[in-house]
Computed example of a mutant assay.
Amino acid sequence: MATTITPKETSAKAGKPLERSVYAHATTPLVLAAFAAVYLLWGSTYLAIRVGVETVPPLILAGLRHFTVGVILYPILRWRTRVRPTAANWRSAVVTGWLLLFVGNGGVSWAEQIVPSGITALLVTMVSLWLVIVDWLRPGGVRPAPKVVLGLVLGFAGVALLVGPSHWGGSERIDLRGVAVLMIACFAWACGSIYSKHGGMPRSALLGVAMQSFSGGVALLLAGLLSGEFHHFHFAAVSWPSWVALAYLIVFGSCIGLSAYLYILQKSTAARVATYALVNPVVALILGWLFAEEIISLRTVIAAVVILTAVVLVITAPHRAPARKTDLEPVPAPGEV
């Protein structure tokens, strides 16, 4: 697609900020396809997890998913990138793998035993809010702007609405145990995301993901062993829908979805990429309603509007000029990668 060079773009060659170049290829068919993949594939992972945990214990399901991704991708990416991870790289991968995948994705998988997949996706959007809080509280952190503070208040008000009085809005309130686990998962994901930007990951983003997947997968499988999940787990008892769900999570959720996400990070702006956080829960709610008989009640609709409004306020608020490019990039949520 031909792109007209504007005076702003011309002036950028003289050392001024380039304002249009990041949009130059934002509407090519491949970029649009990558956005569609991130929107639809990651939005559908919540239903896949829900189907998977029907006959596979949650820690084993998440562990098999991430361990398989790590074992497959790591040797391929080592060969293609020629990057040799250092001990510091592995240390960062272990820490972030445990925070992001063991606590984060493992928590989501456990919660989906008692929380509908659509509601889970909605609550997981709180990662955007927890990122602000963690980035504020860390040493040398950034105090949030008033617009962001309003978003934080609205977001937690939306969660309170979901766990409010029973029968309000034509539905039961969400199980408090599941909400608590999801909030812990989101907090851990935010901590891992902030740490990964400053903790010495390898220069190849995909190789770093493979290392995190391997580390997190090992932690999840060990946790499944120690918690007794393997004692009650039998491969013969796993239904074919759960096997299909696991394969879907590995291939489409982790491999294809993540590749599409990293691609649009390179080809589009952070603000546009961040829209996936608004689309994914809507996709998850619709899929849960269509295929898992999950109810979309008045309570759910109002809470969704409140929480997603909060996310919009946070991701559209002006931020300080970052020291590193990665500070601008939105991060995937714990139910997706």
Rank of each mutant, 00 (worst) to 15 (best):
R84K: 13
Y74T: 15
W90N: 09
Y23E: 12
G104E: 05
L40D: 03
A33H: 05
W42V: 08
Q113R: 15
L99A: 08
R65E: 08
A24T: 12
V83H: 08
A33S: 13
F35S: 02
W79D: 10
A87E: 04
S92N: 08
Y23F: 10
P58G: 12
R78E: 09
E54P: 13
L32K: 07
T55M: 06
P85F: 08
T45C: 08
A37G: 04
F35L: 00
G52A: 12
I76D: 07
W90M: 09
Y39L: 00
Y23K: 00
L77F: 05
T28P: 03
N89Y: 11
R80Y: 05
V83M: 04
V53W: 04
S109Y: 02
L99P: 00
V22C: 05
E112Q: 15
S109N: 07
S21Q: 15
W98V: 15
G107K: 05
F102I: 02
W79L: 14
G104P: 06
A62H: 07
L47F: 06
G63P: 12
R80H: 01
P85I: 04
L101H: 04
W110M: 11
L61I: 09
N89Q: 03
V108P: 02
V69Y: 00
H66E: 06
I114H: 11
A34T: 04
P75L: 11
S92A: 15
T68M: 11
T27F: 15
L32A: 10
A87I: 15
A34E: 00
A93I: 02
A93S: 13
L47A: 12
G97R: 10
V53G: 08
T27L: 13
I72G: 14
E112K: 11
G104H: 03
S44V: 02
G43C: 05
W98Y: 13
Y23W: 12
G107W: 05
H25I: 10
G107E: 00
L30W: 09
H66S: 10
F35K: 00
V115N: 07
L61M: 15
I60F: 09
A87H: 11
V22T: 01
A87D: 01
V31G: 01
W42R: 03
L61C: 10
A48N: 11
V83P: 00
R50L: 04
V53M: 06
V22L: 12
N105V: 10
Q113F: 02
P57D: 10
T68F: 08
T28Y: 06
P75F: 13
G70V: 07
R80I: 01
A93W: 05
A62G: 05
L100R: 02
F102P: 01
L77E: 06
L40G: 09
G106N: 07
V69A: 04
T27V: 13
R91C: 09
P29Y: 03
L64C: 14
L59V: 08
P58R: 02
E54C: 11
Y39M: 10
A34K: 05
A37I: 07
I49N: 09
T96N: 01
L64R: 10
Y39A: 07
E54L: 14
